[in-house]
Amino acid sequence: MNDTNKNTKHGYPGLLIVVEGTDGSGRTMQIEKLREWLSFKGYGVMVSEWKTSKLMSNVIDQAKEKNLLNASTFSLLYAADFTDRLEKVIIPALRAGIIVITDRYTYTAYSRDVVRGVSPEWVRRVYDFAPVPDLVFYLKMPVEALLKRIIATSGFDYYESGRDIGLSTDFYESFKLYQRRIINEYAKMSNEFGFITINGNHSINTVQDKIRQNIEPLLEKIID
């Protein structure tokens, strides 16, 4: 097995593909379809989701229930989760030539934490050890469409509505204001990090096709 790969952006033999977007943008469904497709084609593939490390995910859930987190603590809790997954799961898989798809990545922190008041430079430095992904897909959804999806499915969540930053005591209003700010941060990052922006309002198959078209040329770069 070869240890380094000059054809990937991070230098590991595998591929790192990131899917970003707000809740309700269809991220999880697109990732599942992508995983199936890659497995079917015979590639080793693995999905790693935001906030799922054994070390931190329960701690984060408990902390959020108490609604007593300030911006820097909130940010660092997620950074610990990310680091633990990165070191124990993501990097070992990339070393083994696996395609790692991550459901959210550092960009989620850059948008959420900055909206909560930490400085963009500070949070970027906290995550500066993260491998550069080969592709970042951003599923962009207008707030109005997000609102409909959220109301029809999971309902409002305290933090996803940004209630902790006190924009409005009305959930509907707060969600709108908060998600607008999040979308705004994603828009600002689009050039900075070279996102492939896909309109999340298109049909599931149209979105999936666009994702696959972008990945296809990279598959021959994997070393396993």
Binding site: L55, N70, L77, E87
Partner: peptide, 22 residues
């Protein structure tokens, strides 16, 4: 014994950030 130097560092920063603000 399951912490890497970096997770060790961030966990202590979380503790500090929480005590600082609270």
């Amino acid at each position: 014994n399951q912490l890497s130097p970096r997770t060790f560092s961030i966990l202590h920063a979380i503790d500090f950030a929480d005590r600082l603000e609270q």
